[in-house]
Simulated assay, not measured.
Amino acid sequence: MMKEENRLRYDLIAVCKRLEEKGLVAAADGNVSCRAGKNSLLITPSGRAKGELSPLDLLLVNLEGEVLAGQGRPSSEIRMHLLVYEKRPDVMAVVHAHPPMLTAFTLAGIPFRSDALPEVWMHFGPVPTAPYATPSTREVPDSLAPHLEGSHAILLERHGSLTLGRDLNEACQRLEKLEHAAHTLYYAHLMNRSAPEPLAPEALIKLNKIKHG
């Protein structure tokens, strides 16, 4: 068990460095977690730059958010992570980041049209935006709760994104794919001066059949 926890610590740190290198977080922004056992998870500490963390800086906490091992306080957004793991037993890792383009979409009040890009629709389905909630408060999990069922990604109004995965790499890749798609949708909007049109309903039905078939 200890060997597996050590591996997860290194995997989580690799994701933190990846997020910083790709400009998806800045300084102490964002937080990352993963399940470390039936009743525990690893999570980034509060107030620490993600690119400067080491495996031993991560905190082991129980599903009530109590620290089992490590120094410092868990991320101020731990309630959000705990809610995901409570409601979604299929989720093994959570990445909350502040990707610039996705966050700009929520600032501009533009819905993320995953149904305009076939590969994005097949990968994510609808990508909802949770209404604004005061960061680091119980408002954040409350705003997320209605959107959790079946979602691989949720945008947080004025507060970045949340991506879920079966492991840390998948949760991170989903964020990268989503931010890349946001750039594509933005460029299309600039070229056409209107929101990209969604695929026709029959096209979405075909994609759903491929996805589930």
Rank of each mutant, 00 (worst) to 15 (best):
L155C: 05
L190P: 14
E119V: 11
E149P: 03
P126F: 01
S143Y: 03
S136A: 13
G165R: 00
E119F: 11
A97P: 11
Y187E: 13
A188K: 05
E170M: 02
H180Y: 15
L148N: 06
S136T: 14
P126R: 04
N169C: 13
S151Q: 03
L164H: 01
I154Y: 03
P100K: 04
M101T: 13
M191I: 14
E170W: 08
L168N: 13
A130D: 00
L185R: 02
G109P: 11
I110C: 04
E179I: 13
P196Y: 02
P126M: 00
L156T: 05
S151R: 08
M101R: 14
Y132D: 06
L102Y: 08
R158P: 07
G109R: 08
S161C: 14
L107A: 13
L175D: 01
P196E: 03
P196S: 06
L148A: 01
A181F: 10
A182M: 10
E149T: 07
S136C: 11
L148W: 09
R174S: 02
Y187P: 12
P135I: 07
F124R: 01
A145G: 04
A153P: 05
V127L: 03
S161F: 11
V140I: 06
Y187N: 12
N169Y: 13
P196A: 02
H123A: 12
A188C: 09
F112I: 06
Y132A: 01
P128N: 04
